[in-house]
């Protein structure tokens, strides 16, 4: 099984948990635990939901005097129902992360060196970096996030989606188009997407994938 979603690509080039970096994930995102910086987030990419939990996020001073950021994240596929259950305190934080046991990974990086995603087989492998079992996402945790607001949004989302049978990969379609556009609009204001004009030489590259 391959870990296949955009977040990991984003993680390779950026700091996923950085407050200043707003372009972290190209998806709908909810901060679930945010103390001085986000510790746990949930995000959605077209009806697939994921948890991201920061196992480590610190800066270390190396022997040669340089400093490097160390970041290790747990990324787990989940369901909307599990997120709602977590917010309603029906399940604890650790159990929610392992709700889809086959899809739990960790990724890490030190400075610019990115380590490949590694599958986590069981809770014991990372238990020292996660809250102990029985710790719920409730008011006793220091948290800047308005959980009531998120719960309200996600619950109405869950009610809406439960009405439908949503397709799996069979009728899922994906297209990826890559093209270059001219920066300048010509004198007549005509927008030229492809072809070669007198003023702009345009190269069009199309590379797409369709999954049926």
């Amino acid at each position: 099984m391959k870990l296949n979603f955009k977040a990991v690509n984003e993680f390779n080039s950026q700091n996923m948990m950085d407050h200043k970096n707003k372009e972290i994930i190209r998806a709908t995102k909810y901060n679930l635990i945010d103390i001085s910086e986000p510790l746990m987030i949930a995000f959605e990419q077209l009806n697939t939901y994921y948890f991201v939990y920061a196992l480590q996020n610190r800066t270390i001073a190396m022997k040669n005097g340089e400093i490097a950021d160390v970041q290790e994240l747990l990324i787990a596929q989940t369901t909307l129902k599990t997120i709602v259950d977590l917010l309603e305190e029906k399940i604890d934080i650790s159990s929610s992360l392992f709700s889809c046991k086959d899809e739990v990974y960790r990724v890490g990086k030190v400075g610019n060196k990115v380590f490949p995603a590694k599958k986590i087989e069981n809770f014991e492998q990372v238990d020292s970096k996660l809250p102990i079992k029985g710790v719920n996402l409730d008011k006793t945790l220091p948290n800047k996030t308005n959980l009531k607001k998120i719960l309200k949004i996600l619950k109405s989302e869950l009610n809406y989606r439960e009405k439908f049978l949503i397709s799996d990969h069979k009728i899922d379609k994906k297209t990826n188009v890559r093209f270059s556009t001219p920066h300048k609009i010509d004198d007549y204001g005509e927008y030229v997407l492809s072809g070669i004009t007198e003023k702009n030489s345009v190269v069009q590259m199309i590379n797409y994938e369709v999954e049926v």
């Binding site: 190209r26 077209l46 009806n47 989606r161 439908f164 049978l165 949503i166 397709s167 009728i171 899922d172 379609k173 994906k174 297209t175 990826n176 188009v177 890559r178 093209f179 270059s180 556009t181």
Partner: peptide, 10 residues
Amino acid sequence: IEVDLSVKFG
């Protein structure tokens, strides 16, 4: 410009 367009039916 990279365009990534995904749709799902229900």
